[in-house]
Amino acid sequence: MREGSLVRTAVAPVLLGIVAVLLWQGAVSALDIKPFILPGPVQIGQQFAANIDNVVAGMAVTGWNALVGLVIGTILGILAAIVAALVRVVDGLAAPIVASLAVVPIVALAPVLYTMFGAGAETARQIVAGLAVFVPVYFNTLKGLRQVRPVHRDLMRSYASTRWQATRTVTLPTALPFVFTGLRIASSLAVISALIAEYFGGPVGGLGRAITSSAASSNYGLAWAYVLGSIILGLVFYCAALGLEKLATRRHGG
């Protein structure tokens, strides 16, 4: 069972990725696709290795902004969901507001935030990442908090438990899988949102600005090397969220 699970979760995706890269390189070589259209994996890998310091520096900037947004957005999303679950009026008032946040375009929001907080500050990028994180965490947590069966609530009342005791022992453990589902979705969104926000101004650092600068100078292999850095960063965030979920689930199960 464990070996089969390992193959499904690790080996199979790696093999699929290797096959996809080989097909990509074969298509680029066989069809003589120009680098400005699509560079091959070999060229991207060479540029990535040759500029590893710059790529890592860009990953550090984007990663920090994404991490700040992820932490703040997750905390606010969970707290808001708890309040909405406890107070139905708040739920009714908050639902359309949170839904509207989900459709706010980063293209329009980022320049406004740069004007508010200054073009030299990373604050705008962190806020964009936080807003992107808040929405899935809020909705998934709220859904999880509503999964408690009435019979379980009645049982806690029969034990004369307080609302906090019922929340701690029944409601939160039931909601935990939903919280981590939102967190896994949000982990990737945080990186994507922080990176996209870098396209529209702000400090020079970050993968987004590096991609646009490289593409503007027609160095497409380098631009794709920064794209590769953003993919790695997104995978790191996702795997960290998945690992945290496994750890929390194991401790709760124990």
Rank of each mutant, 00 (worst) to 15 (best):
156 M>P: 03
78 I>Q: 03
55 V>I: 15
57 A>T: 09
97 I>E: 12
93 L>W: 15
53 D>P: 04
106 I>Q: 03
34 K>L: 08
96 P>N: 14
124 A>D: 03
131 L>W: 00
42 V>M: 08
56 V>H: 07
156 M>D: 08
113 L>S: 04
44 I>K: 00
126 Q>K: 08
146 R>K: 14
129 A>I: 04
83 V>W: 13
115 T>Q: 12
152 H>M: 12
89 V>W: 13
30 A>G: 10
45 G>A: 08
155 L>V: 13
125 R>D: 10
98 V>F: 14
105 P>K: 05
127 I>Q: 00
67 L>E: 04
45 G>N: 05
99 A>W: 09
151 V>K: 10
148 V>A: 11
83 V>Q: 07
43 Q>E: 13
145 L>H: 05
78 I>G: 02
56 V>S: 07
31 L>C: 09
62 T>P: 02
83 V>F: 12
137 V>N: 01
132 A>S: 10
116 M>L: 15
121 A>G: 06
20 A>P: 06
97 I>R: 07
57 A>E: 12
88 R>H: 10
154 D>H: 11
117 F>I: 10
53 D>Y: 11
124 A>W: 00
101 L>V: 14
111 P>H: 10
74 T>S: 12
67 L>P: 01
154 D>Y: 07
65 N>W: 08
106 I>L: 13
20 A>K: 07
151 V>S: 14
140 N>F: 02
56 V>A: 14
130 G>Q: 00
153 R>A: 12
74 T>E: 05
37 I>N: 08
109 L>A: 14
55 V>H: 01
44 I>P: 00
29 S>H: 10
160 A>E: 14
133 V>F: 08
18 I>G: 08
158 S>K: 04
31 L>P: 03
97 I>S: 10
109 L>V: 14
35 P>H: 06
124 A>K: 01
111 P>K: 03
103 V>A: 15
47 Q>Y: 03
124 A>T: 02
160 A>Y: 11
34 K>A: 15
52 I>L: 15
157 R>G: 06
115 T>G: 06
144 G>H: 03
131 L>M: 06
80 A>K: 03
22 L>R: 08
